[in-house]
Structures are given as structure tokens and as C-alpha cells.
Design a protein around this nucleic acid. Structure first.
Lengths: 211, 211
DNA sequence: TAAATTTAATTAAACGTTTGTTTAGTTTTA
DNA sequence: TAAAACTAAACAAACGTTTAATTAAATTTA
């Protein structure tokens, strides 16, 4: 789907407001006002508020697909390195687009199966399949141990990052980092999160040294 | 705060609908209808929809406070055992009240600081303080290693469980467990989650064997 | 190229619903 | 018989969407 300049402006505004106030908590009048357009333009361009939401999802996910798939086929990297790159990619992506992440969480929470929730499930399935293949190759080569619940590990990765975005302010406060500029703090938790997740994955995927 | 039978019935209905449709997505008429009462009773008993939400939170959190605090003071247990019990408690609590967990997530996502979000932050702070003390004692006794980011570990625990509740259906599907009764499946992920989190905490908290 | 015509973009206003809350009156309980 | 519990109806405000009219852009015709 291709969107013109004005449509993209609407999509971006909608994304921001949805992430702050939720889908039901955001009115089309709010969106129109902040985007500087007439309310009717939303129906005109997207058909409905619901369809606008789908356009937001479409716009934000379509870009990030190919990148990962190419990386996984890179032959120079060990499977372990690929896992680490995946972690870095994931953390990066969602720290730079926390608003969209929130919208996705909100949509998953209100699990009326139709619409966005289904699109998210498909996205997850594709990602799960890619990672599954990666892990299995690592198991063949002896890098990773057997009996790994990949979906459970994904839940840990996704969940930890989500929780960090949700409780960002809380984390900032308990670490006495209110003085840091927003950007520096983002960088700080990016590093923290990456290191933390890499450690978790390492100890879960590889055989522990015999004690 | 004490609630009579009818009020509790309203609170429980509200909790369920809020967790499915969100705060804004649930109308007081929906709640009244499903609870079998007149719309006006909600204002009559709680004052407003917002206050009803606070009552839901109050009702659900007030019970679960003392239990943990008593356990932590038990002297027969090692700090490591206490950590494991905390994990089991947490997983148990939220698998048996997934609806309320969803309501809390929804409230945290719409981070208008007033109201529920503030109450949740306080709850988190109290929990963090308790765990911090526990970890520090484990560090003194040599059970745990130094330089542990406790808030980050909490994010992993809370996040993993959240993610599991959010994507319960997805997890069920990719593991081909659609045939299992709901209750058995809950039991299955309870065990899985506990074992998983215990492993994660063990390898994060304790010194790894020298490789 | 200039005028005419068609298509697309944009607007203010109105539509019918639904929202949370209040009122004024009735029934039940103490 | 006074207080509490409960009801149906009404309230103004906000909701998503549609309509009908107007302006801007693109295309066709002369």
C-alpha cells in the first residue's frame, strides 16, 4: 500500500495518540486537530478509524521485514553471533519506536481476534519460524543445547523490552537518573538491555559448564 | 475500604470487562447490564467510572501484600529458596488472575500519571525494596554475586509473565496444544514459566562456574 | 496556449448513537 | 417513619461517520 504525504502525516499522528491514549481513548477529532486537517479527511482517505489503525500497523511493519531475513543468511556469522544481532536489532527497533510498540501491546491486550491482533500473530509466527530455524542449526552444530523452548525465550525477550518501555519512568526514578537527558537515558537502557538479554540467552541456549 | 456483596459483584464485572475491552472501551452500561444492576448504581456506590476503577485496583491488591512480607522473614529458608518462592508466588498470582493483570498493563500503558498508574508505581516500589533487601542479604552471605540490576531482573520476570498472558493463545497454537482443557494448559505454562524463570534468575544471581 | 471540463481534495455542518452522570421518584429495609 | 437501595428517564457532551457544497488540480477540448 502506498500513502501520500498527507496520509503519512495522519498515520504518524494517529500512532502517537493511540500509543498515549489507546485506540478507544483517541478520537478522530483529536487526530484531525493535531494533524491539522479536517475530520472528514480520515474517512475520506482511510474509510474508518479502524482502517486507519490497520494502516498504521501496515506502514510501520512493512519496512522491518527484509533486514532480519538477510542477516540470518549471512554465512560468516556463527549462530551465536546471529542471536546477539537479533537481540540488538530488536532492542534498537523498539527503543526507537516506543510509541508503536505501545500501540501493538494495546491491540494485543484487547484480544478481539479480528483486525490488528491477527496481523500481529502472523508477524510473530514468521519471526518464530525464522528463529526456530536459527536455533536448530545451532543445535546441529553443537553450539546450542537441546530442549529449548523458543517461544518461551521470545516471551522473555519481548516481555523484558516491553516492561522496560512501559515502566521507563519508574526505572529512571529508582536509579536516580532523572537528571540525564532523555536521549542519554535511552542509550543507557539500550546498552543495559542488550547486555542483559545476551547473558540470559547465552546461559539458556548453551550447555552450562559441568559444575 | 469495605465493599458489600453487590459492590463486589460490580467490581468483579468491571475487572473482567476492563481487561477485555480496556477502560475506555467499556461503558458503564455494559458493566451495569452484565452485573444485572441499574446504571445509576455505579455512580451511587462509587461516584464515577474512574473511582470504580480505583476500587477494582484497591480490592485486588490489598489482599496480596502481607503474604510475601511474612515469607521473606522466614529464617529457615536460604535466600536462594526465597527467590524461588517469590517467583512461584508471582507466577501463581497472575496466572490465576490474568484479567486483573491485563487491567494493570492497560493502565500502565496509558501513562497519565494520576489515578491508577501512581498506585501501581507505589506497589512496584514496595516490591522492589523488599527484593532489594533480599538480594543484598544474599550478597553478604556469598550466595549471590555483586553488581546485580534488580529492577532489570524484575522487568524480566514481570515482562515474561505478562507476555505469556498476552500471547497465551499464540503460545498454545504454536505448541499444538489446542486440544488441552484450559485448566490443564494453565498448569502446563505455570510449570514451564516457573522452571524457566528460576533458571534465568539462578544464572543471573549466582557466580558462574569458571569456564 | 486558453478555455472548458472532469476529477480530486477539502471544508463546515449535520447525522444518529453512545457516552458518563444526574435527577426525581419509587420500593425496600431497618 | 426515616434511611438506604434501587429504578426509569433525561441530560449535555462527545463519539465516528456522512452529506452537500466549495476549492484546487489535472485532463481534455478547441
Amino acid at each position: 500500500m502506498e500513502f501520500n504525504e498527507k496520509q503519512i502525516s495522519i498515520i504518524n499522528t494517529a500512532e502517537r495518540l493511540f500509543s498515549i491514549n489507546g485506540f478507544d481513548g483517541t478520537s478522530v477529532r483529536d487526530i484531525a486537530h493535531e494533524a491539522g486537517i479536517n475530520v472528514a479527511m480520515i474517512s475520506y482517505y482511510f474509510g474508518s478509524k479502524e482502517k486507519l489503525m490497520e494502516a498504521v500497523f501496515e506502514q510501520k511493519t512493512s519496512k522491518m521485514r527484509l533486514k532480519v531475513e538477510n542477516m540470518l543468511q549471512e554465512e560468516k556469522l556463527t549462530n551465536h553471533e546471529k542471536v546477539n544481532i537479533l537481540i540488538e536489532d530488536y532492542v534498537d527497533r523498539f527503543l526507537s519506536q516506543p510509541q508503536f510498540h505501545k500501540v501493538m501491546l494495546l491491540e494485543q491486550l484487547s484480544d478481539k481476534p479480528g483486525g490488528i491482533a491477527g496481523m500481529i500473530d502472523e508477524l510473530k509466527k514468521r519471526n518464530l519460524a525464522l528463529i526456530k530455524k536459527l536455533i536448530q542449526e545451532g543445535q546441529k552444530s553443537g553450539e546450542f543445547k537441546k530442549n529449548i523452548d523458543i517461544a518461551l525465550m521470545m516471551a522473555t525477550m519481548v516481555g523484558t523490552v516491553s516492561q522496560m518501555i512501559i515502566s521507563r519512568r519508574f526505572y529512571r526514578e529508582v536509579n536516580n537518573m532523572e537528571h540525564l537527558p532523555e536521549e542519554e537515558f535511552t542509550n543507557y537502557i539500550r546498552k543495559k538491555l542488550c547486555a542483559h538479554l545476551k547473558n540470559l540467552f547465552k546461559s539458556t541456549l548453551t550447555n552450562e559448564e559441568k559444575k
